[in-house]
């Protein structure tokens, strides 16, 4: 299904709703942790793996409840989509953690079920994100800082016995030729919310964000794409705007 088809479908649901009986706005705060993987292929690289890495996210969920089972939800948020490049075997110790911060705006339809207080729900939508910042932390073999092993009789058991490792922890400098800082994708979640007597809600939600844009611009032939794929869990609360404005 294309984005266009999905957008059309969601629009039809909204427009076709028979009656907006108790439309209500909610706003709140959410935070959580996630695990991101960079989906790519590097099978030509010896002793090298791309591994998932955990990160954090914080956001401000905004919910427009159309009726008791459908709501629209936006959740502007800061979200990390991290991953690690690890060298293995003889090269164990060489790695790079890529800490990437995104400003993300998911737009979702929320389908609820359950009783008035305890509800289960499913979210589904699309998101747009901007790659805001990057940091690289790791360790590399420093070719021009050799361990003077040639003058000893000790056979190295690790690359660190040949070249001193250079540890680094620095801001990532974006390359406008290579880095695609805009990201779009699908987002889906499943959660449980509990409504208190005063109408506020607490929720816990598992979420998957699935990028369908390459992390790189198309700048060379035979380019292997790189996609972020993130699983996260968020907790948060939503306050009814009616409550905030004093109307009960």
């Amino acid at each position: 299904m294309s984005i266009r088809q999905l957008t059309l479908f969601i629009s039809l649901i909204i427009l076709g709703l028979p009656a907006i009986t108790r439309a209500q706005f909610f706003i709140g705060l959410e935070a959580g942790g996630n695990k991101n993987s960079l989906i790519t292929n590097n099978s030509n690289q010896a002793f090298t793996s791309y591994d998932s890495k955990s990160g954090i996210s914080v956001g401000v969920p905004i919910l427009y409840e159309v009726n008791d089972w459908f709501a629209l939800r936006a959740s502007p948020s800061y979200m990390q989509k991290n991953y690690t490049i690890n060298r293995t075997g003889f090269f164990n110790g060489i790695y790079q953690d890529n800490i990437n911060g995104y400003l993300q705006l998911p737009l979702m339809g929320q389908f609820s079920f359950g009783d008035d207080q305890l509800k289960g729900y499913v979210n589904l939508g699309v998101y747009g994100a901007y790659w805001l910042s990057g940091k690289v932390k790791g360790s590399e073999a420093n070719v021009l800082n050799p361990v003077d092993s040639s003058y000893t009789t000790v056979a190295p058991s690790n690359i660190a016995g040949i070249n001193n490792l250079y540890p680094y922890n620095e801001k990532y400098t974006f390359n406008p030729t290579k880095d695609n800082r805009m990201e779009f994708g699908w987002i889906a979640g499943i959660g449980i919310s509990y409504e208190t007597n005063n109408g506020n809600r607490f929720f816990i939600e598992g979420r998957r964000t699935y990028s369908f844009t390459d992390q790189q611009k198309k700048y060379m032939i035979n380019q292997t794409p790189r996609y972020n794929d993130t699983y996260g869990i968020n907790v948060g609360f939503l306050m009814s705007l009616d409550n905030l404005s004093g109307r009960y």
Binding site: I39, N42, S43, N44, Q45, G185, W186, T224, Y227
Partner: peptide
């Protein structure tokens, strides 16, 4: 929605 990720050979 993603492009195919083909194997990269040494």
């Amino acid at each position: 929605c993603r492009k195919d990720i083909t194997q990269v050979n040494a």
